[in-house]
Design a protein around this nucleic acid. Structure first.
Lengths: 344, 344
DNA sequence: TTTAGCACTCGCAGATCGAGAGTGCTAACA
DNA sequence: TGTTAGCACTCTCGATCTGCGAGTGCTAAA
């Protein structure tokens, strides 16, 4: 167990390092208002804290920096959340209050505010489409051989896709198909559309439609090639401004990750509900060994919908970022709920 | 006028510098097969070429590097286009031959091949929507207060947009509206939809539709908020691998540009038809002062449609990149034309 | 238990230096 | 007269050294 004094010093060191990005020595800890011990005393304590694994020395005559364990302890026990300033609150609210037609606009906006407020990189994951269910499906021929399929989910997400399409299908038949699909598939989770298609729908189609084979094939493709949940970024290059990332090679590794949305959505998908903080190697992903990822979830009617995330250095402004994310994710939930009620 | 020998030497220097990224000295020029002069002779010529502005010295005892004027001369007069290797040709063809349903898939793929073949960053601009005309418009209610508007252009581009929608519009009326719109707007350039709407359509709607006011407002918004031409990237971080970009600050400047699609599409839109090469300051954009941008256009039925572009250092593998871009843009045009014929 | 004092460590920035690459000039050569 | 060998000179780069400053850890005194 750490003594009161050790806690005080650990907190002081983390706070200092977070703002200055430089190893902090005993003298500068001692000079802080909340600390009333001499440098020598601090040194002893620091030495102990190092032995316990909370601090590290870059080299023998530099100050100490928090270790991963140190950050973890800080986050779990020491950190005092900041109250958001009026400016921050109004930044968030004004951006989110903006009237929007599409779900995605809200998410894009959120990514933008989040990155501009924190000056880290923000990642916002759209709803996990596979968990949402189908509300409506439409089929619109746009040429003799092409059609647009539109799928609307219960969460209000709209997806359109152009497909090859049996040209000689006449209007009445087409309507029939659409009716069958809507009839049978409403409420079915997107992930299960495939199954339903091959089991129920195929026999039905056979009865009513001439071109049912190519139709089936087409539908099969549509249901298969669902987009993954979309990923939105804010301030992709913000992270380059952090002093710990002044190495082009490392930067490149990280930016490359951003190019693969599936990987990103795996890395940032939050498991639990609420706020999650992963520090350094806790991310279990080497390029992020000295990054911290904070995620929060937003939801609709109590159902987990998506994740907002922040990527920054382990030396992150935890108190502020946490407060912001907490506020933002709750606000998103609120607005989403209101929006959904209005549009269902 | 430059002498034969000066041309030979200039070409040798540019070629060498392009591949090695290091100032080239008289000795290494002299050692080349096509050059049969002693280093001393070369030195004299190099000195002259420098005086004429084709070469530069990083410092007095380094070799020479091509100046912007040197590259320009090289590109205009000296460069011998390489023949693409079988591998390159088949890379391009196999990627583009891939069956695709949506226009954008072709463009995305093109961006990808281009960047992977050149190892620079590729930028491909989609069709300039404002120049294309409307082929079909559809309106699908998806809830009591929302609808999806789908616009198909003559180039086969499909665009969907969710909008607020007068809920109490009944089926028959809706159909009427859609018919009017299609009737009156087919063949109209997207840029002119607004005008048409306020002039012709509004009076027509007034006759047939109860909710014509909110309907008009909604349509007005749809026609206004057209997406700009889309921008697709390939190998965004490729440029970081170039030795001239090992400075995080500069890299950040360039990557930031990529975050603003409108800016990018302005910078990369090609004016003329065919291949354009802009070297360094010719780009008239400071962050690109030591970059070269090569653009080529692809077209449909002879109409300029979009642009493929490459961003790399001024020290670019001109011969190879030019050949690749030429081939790719022509292939895109070919495939696009075939695709369009099939689907119109 | 806390603190002052002090020797010690180590990285960093600046200075110095030699090696290597390349130039420019001069003088000899074909 | 054009070409080339020779050579002194310039400049960068990396290695080595040095003093400084920041910071530590230990000891002994308060």
């Amino acid at each position: 167990m750490l003594t009161e004094r050790q806690l005080l010093i650990l907190k002081a060191i983390v706070d200092d390092y977070i703002t200055n990005a430089e190893p902090v020595g005993s003298r500068s800890v001692s000079k802080r208002d909340e600390v009333s011990y001499s440098p020598a005393t601090i040194r002893n304590e620091m030495s102990d804290l190092e032995e316990l694994g909370f601090l590290e020395k870059p080299h023998s005559s530099a100050g100490r920096i928090p270790s991963q364990k140190g950050y973890r302890y800080y986050v779990d026990h020491l950190l005092s959340p900041t109250k958001l300033t009026k400016g921050e609150v109004s930044d968030i609210e004004s951006v989110l209050d903006h009237r929007f037609n599409e779900f995605e606009q809200l998410i894009k906006q959120s990514a933008k505010v989040l990155s501009s407020l924190t000056s880290y990189t923000s990642i916002v994951l759209g709803p996990e489409v596979f968990e949402s269910t189908l509300r409506q499906i439409q089929l619109i021929p746009i040429s003799s051989s092409q059609a647009v399929v539109i799928i609307v989910t219960d969460t209000g997400h709209v997806e359109s896709q152009t497909v090859q399409f049996p040209g000689d299908l006449e209007g009445a038949e087409l309507e029939k198909v659409v009716n069958i699909l809507n009839d049978r598939l409403r409420g079915v989770p997107l992930a299960r559309l495939q199954d339903k298609l091959s089991v129920e729908i195929s026999t039905l189609l056979k009865q009513y439609v001439n071109q049912y084979e190519s139709m089936l094939k087409m539908l099969g493709e549509v249901f298969q090639t669902h987009q993954n949940e979309k990923v939105f970024y804010g301030g992709k290059t913000n992270i380059l401004a952090q002093p710990e990332f002044n190495n082009v090679e490392r930067v490149r590794n990280i930016l490359n990750i951003f190019e693969e949305d599936t990987l990103v959505s795996k890395l940032f998908r939050s498991e639990g509900n609420g706020l999650t903080i992963k520090i350094g190697e806790e991310n279990r992903f080497e390029p992020f060994d000295d990054c911290t990822i904070i995620t929060a979830t937003y939801s609709l009617d109590g159902n987990h919908m998506g994740t907002v995330g922040i990527l920054g250095p382990t030396r992150m402004e935890y108190p502020r970022v946490i407060s912001i994310m907490d506020y933002l994710s709750k606000d998103m939930t609120k607005i989403l709920t209101a929006w959904h009620q209005k549009n269902s």
